[in-house]
Design a binder for these strands. Structure first.
Lengths: 208, 208
DNA sequence: CTAACGTTTGTCCAATCGGTCAAAATTTGC
DNA sequence: GCAAATTTTGACCGATTGGACAAACGTTAG
């Protein structure tokens, strides 16, 4: 027996930890880290503060767990890009996947946006390491497509930035998007409209 | 004499209020409203907390003043769009102006982003009122251009969103952009690269 | 010089926050 | 059914926070 071995978690522990993380995602994504209190999270999770602190040793601990989980799923769409398919189809698919993530996981998007806005204090090494090399790798693939004349010559890095920006906008700036579109066009259909628009923009631009 | 008349402010009052607002913009834009303390702002402004509270009656007061000022200048570029010039040139100019604002006023951009991320609690009426009608008006102009065959037919509202998203990305997600571009390409030249890329994207898209 | 006015500061307060702790309540293994 | 382990809670603590206040300090006009 290893002295440092962790006893395997109870079924209740697994459930409650999941419940807390979900509540914390709600609270952190709308109030930021410093704007959120343990009481708020405990409240949203339907338990008392000391009880919550029985499952996570600190507010930092909850936040770190959320960020770590987020990053695993967040970069998955980018990983899927490879150079076996048709380049334009591949990029269209990437844009669609990113837009679906903005629609289905807006809280995760806002949590990430909050972290970056504050200067990425907790994930800076990851941005400069894992994220940079992943983007560099995909930029290399895209450069190959340009050399082969499959897509127009342009800057692959800024292309990736523009895809991130346009898709995450629909999660991070959701209230503004809905306010501007108004009650008529701001409903669920806005994501379909966005998908159609973005496909046209990225493929053909505005020139008539 | 009106009993409620405000005595006109001293020159010192004008100076100090300006100093405080500048310091507060620094602090609020990097820490968010709840993440910022009056002490931090007072420190950044080089004065004591009670002294700061002599010029602004509360933390809310400082923030509200900043937001109000921000909005005046923030929508200026959109106001400038009209249908007397060439449509493609007009849109190119708008994109360039917005990108310059991201470069020259990143703190204002992040302050705005923070506010929207938290659900725009303080400016919701403005989004649904002034902003919506302004965007509707410009969308109408753009629709005219499309009818005239001057630019490709697409959704004007989402077009505006995509311009906001791509340009503000370079202010709000600056740390991520710099981390991914690395020390070589992440210098000041990144805005020129972005300008070139965005012009090509919005004009011609990726199709070869 | 001095009275009136504008500015600055030290001290204080109540509320909130993250986190602790021991005791009580509950669940689990046998 | 019962003892051990797990879970939940109420009470509490020190630190931080937004803000109040009166006293002190400076400045300026007569």
């Amino acid at each position: 027996m290893d002295a440092a071995a962790k006893p395997r978690p109870t079924r209740i522990q697994v459930q409650k930890r999941e419940l807390i993380l979900d509540a914390a995602l709600d609270v952190f994504s709308t109030n930021g880290f410093r704007g959120s209190t343990i009481d708020q999270i405990a409240d949203a999770a339907g338990m008392s503060k000391p009880n919550l602190l029985y499952y996570f040793k600190s507010k930092e601990d909850i936040h770190a767990t959320l960020i770590q989980r987020l990053l695993e799923t967040w970069l998955a769409p980018l990983h899927e890009i490879d150079d076996i398919g048709d380049p334009l189809t591949e990029l269209k698919a990437y844009i669609r996947r990113k837009l679906e993530m903005a629609r289905d996981y807006p809280r995760e998007s806002r949590l990430f946006a909050n972290e970056i806005l504050q200067g990425a204090p907790r994930i800076m090494p990851l941005l400069e390491g894992e994220l940079k090399s992943l983007v560099d790798e995909k930029a290399h693939i895209i450069k190959g497509w340009m050399r082969d004349g499959k897509i127009a010559r342009t800057d692959p890095w800024h292309l990736i930035f523009s895809i991130w920006a346009t898709t995450q906008h629909y999660a991070d700036f959701d209230v503004q998007v809905r306010a501007v579109l108004g009650p008529d066009r701001g409903g669920e259909g806005r994501f379909d409209d966005a998908a159609r628009f973005l496909e046209q923009l990225f493929l053909d631009g505005l020139r008539p």
